[in-house]
């Protein structure tokens, strides 16, 4: 009881968010039922009632999807591309934040930050257009290669190379913006720690290694876990806009596959079924990442 007398403000503070979560996050989960039914919008009195009124089919929807070999290929691609991006794109914003931190000229620093976070606001349609311009067979990069006497590379139509195009364009677009979290975290590191390190003879590099980086660990852990959870839903917008039939083999991911399958059909069931599958896997991944972080750094997000 003594606990409650002291702690009740905490529960009050949580109230709005809790209300929000129940209404906007938990209630709609009722719609997950669509994944187990033969759903049609007009089955019941209205679309919601239709969920209950539609026929229960158990795991049929899942079975239908999994039996398609193309889906399994898309699944594999999703993981491969997701892992590739995680490994390469995760450290970049951290590095950027660390580097920018070393820049002493205030205006330069501010200017660079602003420019770097710009591409985040371009839609993928625009970014795709930019990369097409540069990477097409008659584009800048290939002209450059030709000048050097090398063979042209078909960036956008070569399956293996294309995956790297996805990674690089994602890096270009998001690094700056993703660095903001780290920049904010760095700015709140107490300067006394730096002063102490300097007295001990640490140069800039050492200070970064022994003060900045360790202080960033909590942020890094959180971001890592969150990013892991997003692998599956990652950037299908990007792929949808940038891919073409020639690279389906290596670049078709779950979401793009679902998109193509659903054309012309208003088939909600497919979307919800795959979505549920994605959610379950993502959840597992997040828990896994959490565990990993705990083992390595002793801290967790949860």
């Amino acid at each position: 009881m003594k606990y409650l007398r002291k702690a009740w403000p905490l529960y009050i503070l949580m109230l709005p968010a809790l209300l929000y979560t129940i209404v906007f996050k938990l209630l709609p989960l009722y719609g997950l039922g669509i994944a187990f039914k033969d759903y049609s919008l007009f089955n019941g009195r209205d679309a919601v009632d239709a969920i209950a009124a539609s026929e229960f089919v158990g795991l049929d929807n899942f079975r239908k999807i999994f039996s398609e070999p193309e889906f399994l290929k898309a699944l594999a691609n999703t993981f491969i591309i997701g892992a590739l991006k995680l490994v390469i794109l995760f450290p970049l914003p951290i590095l950027l934040a660390l580097f920018i931190n070393e820049i002493k000229q205030r205006h330069l620093k501010s200017c660079l930050q602003t420019i770097c976070y710009l591409p985040h606001f371009f839609s993928w349609v625009v970014v795709a257009g930019i990369f097409f311009n540069i990477l097409s067979t008659s584009g800048l990069v290939n002209s450059f290669l030709q000048m050097l006497g090398l063979d042209k590379i078909n960036f956008l139509m070569n399956g293996k190379v294309f995956r790297w195009v996805l990674v690089v364009s994602d890096a270009w677009k998001e690094t700056g913006f993703s660095a903001i979290v780290y920049i904010a975290a760095i700015s709140s590191i107490s300067t006394t720690l730096y002063e102490a390190a300097e007295i001990d003879g640490a140069g800039r590099f050492d200070r970064m290694l022994h003060v900045t980086l360790p202080q960033l660990t909590p942020s890094i852990v959180i971001m890592f876990i969150l990013k892991t959870g997003k692998i599956l839903e990652e950037n299908y917008q990007q792929i949808l806009v940038m891919y073409n039939p020639v690279v389906y083999e290596t670049a078709d991911v779950i979401q793009t596959y679902v998109y193509r399958m659903g054309i012309g059909q208003m088939d909600y069931t497919l979307g919800v079924t795959v979505g549920l599958f994605n959610s379950i896997i993502s959840f597992a991944l997040v828990l896994l990442a959490n565990l990993l972080c705990k083992l390595i750094t002793g801290r967790t997000a949860i």
């Binding site: 257009g129 097409f132 097409s136 067979t137 008659s138 078909n154 956008l156 139509m157 073409n244 039939p245």
Partner: peptide, 8 residues
């Protein structure tokens, strides 16, 4: 045009 698949 070799860019046929990617041409917009």
């Amino acid at each position: 045009d070799t860019d046929l698949p990617i041409n917009k």
